[in-house]
Amino acid sequence: MAYAYLFKYIIIGDTGVGKSCLLLQFTDKRFQPVHDLTIGVEFGARMITIDGKQIKLQIWDTAGQESFRSITRSYYRGAAGALLVYDITRRDTFNHLTTWLEDARQHSNSNMVIMLIGNKSDLESRREVKKEEGEAFAREHGLIFMETSAKTASNVEEAFINTAKEIYEKIQEGVFDINNEANGIKIGPQHATTNSTLSGSQGGQQAGGGCC
């Protein structure tokens, strides 16, 4: 399917915070409490529309255990966006954010957009991390912030799409060099055959819009 841009995302955070569930909720719109543990990496992809443009999100979901860090580092390469996830019912997953952030900053390109996510917002009664704490952390480190629930799908769409919007704005501002694939952004196939008039017109736009 034709797209104007392709953004590569990576999902990181401690084990068991719900990374794979967020991905599945976003790509398949379903919640699956019983699933295999992620070892190495899993993927998902979905098309979204921003500013009338089709954008393909390519999402890499990683293993959370600390011993996998050395491997996870190689996935940062060429990511335009990162979802850094913690579990609002587990304080320790929030406490580890700093090391995750250090890792992400160190191994990714400097323009990578990072979205901080406090997941499992449906479990209000077991909450250990206040929403304000998440907001404060995000402010302090220049991240976007949201609380989500992969179970109820609350804010899941928004989390992925807002991150894309931020990346898109950066492209418009000329911050990202979109010709360098290492930035995690690819321009869509310009001469792609399209099967709907809508995306057809977008394909045209995008051919002209390559200058940004």
Binding site: D28, R30, F31, Q32, P33, V34, H35, D36, E42, F43, G44
Partner: peptide
């Protein structure tokens, strides 16, 4: 069909 890679079903299917 519903799931890439490891073909495990959804909650309801389980």
């Amino acid at each position: 069909l519903t799931d890439e890679g490891n073909s495990f079903g959804s909650d309801s299917e389980l």
